[in-house]
Amino acid sequence: MQKLNFPSYSFRFKNSENKVAIFDEIRKKFILLTPEEWVRQHTVQFLLQDKNYPKSYLNVEKLIKVNDLKKRYDVVVFQPDGGIYLLIECKAPEVKITQDTFDQIARYNLTLKATYLMVTNGLNHYFCQMDFEKETYIFLKELPNFSND
């Protein structure tokens, strides 16, 4: 798999039927290793190891309803009160991050109301903080570390 713009992490792999799977420690199962999954797993490790988010606050690939359409988010980080702190959209490395990508995550966030957004293709990472009053987002240099405040 392609080298990504993340620190180096160790992963568990398994081969079955000539396909490679990677262990997802959030979903607690092996997942077919696609370019997007490679980015997703690096993102999860980044949150756990570099940003100190508790594993129990993370959720990966769940269905949500957006305007009566079923969509699937990549990663969310919950707050202790059950609200959503961070919503993450992962793309495969060959997928360029465009305004459409931000529009997609913004549509999801109309339902989820996350405080922070992250968009990544593993090579480029974008972090935003929501301003719900002005219905816009502010770009950040990096994602805040987890804190219990």
Rank of each mutant, 00 (worst) to 15 (best):
Y73S: 04
F46R: 01
G83R: 15
W38K: 06
D68N: 15
K65P: 00
P80M: 08
L112V: 14
E61N: 14
K65N: 15
T101H: 02
A106T: 12
T111G: 01
K70V: 12
I84A: 04
P93M: 07
V60A: 07
A106F: 13
V77A: 14
V95D: 09
P35R: 00
R40A: 11
D68S: 15
Y9L: 03
Y9C: 05
R107A: 13
K70P: 04
L112G: 01
E17W: 04
K91M: 04
G83S: 15
E17I: 04
K62N: 15
Y85I: 00
N18Q: 14
E89H: 07
I22P: 06
K55P: 01
L69W: 02
L87H: 03
E37Q: 13
Q99P: 00
I105H: 02
R107D: 11
Y85N: 12
K55Y: 10
F102N: 11
V44E: 01
T34E: 13
R12K: 14
K19G: 00
V75C: 03
F46T: 03
P80N: 11
K91P: 08
I64W: 08
Y73R: 08
P7M: 05
I31M: 08
K14N: 04
K55G: 06
L112F: 00
Y9A: 04
N15W: 03
F11P: 02
I22A: 08
S8Q: 08
K70W: 13
F11T: 08
V39M: 08
D50H: 11
N5W: 01
A21S: 12
K91D: 03
K113H: 14
A92P: 02
R72S: 06
S16F: 13
V76Y: 09
D50G: 07
F13L: 15
V20L: 15
A106V: 09
R27P: 03
R72W: 10
Q79A: 15
K19W: 00
L112N: 04
T34C: 11
Q49F: 11
K70N: 15
N109S: 02
A92V: 03
D74A: 09
N109I: 04
I88P: 02
V75A: 07
K29D: 00
S56P: 00
